[in-house]
Amino acid sequence: MIDAHQHFWRADYPWLPDRLRRDYTLADLRPHLAATGFTRTVLVEAGLCTAAETAGFLALAAGTSEIAAVVGWASLSDPDLAETLAAHRRGAGGSLLAGIRDQVQAGPDDFLDRPAVRAGLATVAAGGLVNELVVRHAQLPSVARAAAALPESTFVLDHLGKPPMDDLGRWRELITPVAECPNVVAKLSGLVTEVGPGWTAEDLRPFVETAVELFGPYRLMFGSDWPVCELVATYEQVAAVMTAILGGRPAGIFGRNAARVYLDGSGS
Rank of each mutant, 00 (worst) to 15 (best):
R89G: 10
A122R: 07
L81H: 04
L85F: 06
V44Q: 07
G63I: 03
D102R: 00
A116V: 13
L58H: 01
G120F: 02
L96K: 07
R118W: 13
A68F: 00
R19E: 15
W9Y: 12
D102A: 03
H7T: 04
A11S: 15
A86D: 09
L43S: 04
Q103K: 05
Y24H: 10
L58V: 03
L85S: 03
T41E: 00
R101P: 14
I100G: 00
Y24N: 02
D23S: 11
D110A: 15
G63Y: 02
R19M: 12
D102Q: 02
A92F: 00
L43C: 11
A52M: 06
H7C: 04
Q6V: 11
A51H: 15
A116K: 09
A87G: 14
A51W: 11
R19T: 14
Q103F: 03
G56N: 12
F111H: 10
T123G: 04
L29I: 10
A68W: 00
A86V: 01
G107S: 10
T36G: 08
D23A: 05
G47H: 08
W73G: 11
F111C: 04
G47W: 08
A51F: 14
A62V: 02
Q6C: 12
S77K: 01
A35T: 15
F38K: 01
G93K: 02
P108E: 07
L85N: 05
F38A: 04
V71G: 12
A46C: 13
L97W: 06
A59Y: 06
I100C: 00
F38D: 04
P115S: 02
G99S: 02
R114A: 13
P17R: 03
R40L: 01
S95L: 14
L96E: 03
A68N: 01
R90K: 09
T39Y: 10
D80L: 09
I100P: 01
W73M: 09
Y24A: 06
L81F: 07
D113Y: 09
D18Q: 14
A87H: 12
E83Q: 12
F111L: 11
F38N: 03
P14E: 05
L121Q: 11
W9N: 07
R90G: 13
G56V: 10
Q6L: 12
W9D: 10
Q105E: 13
L48D: 08
A59F: 05
S77H: 06
R22P: 13
L96A: 06
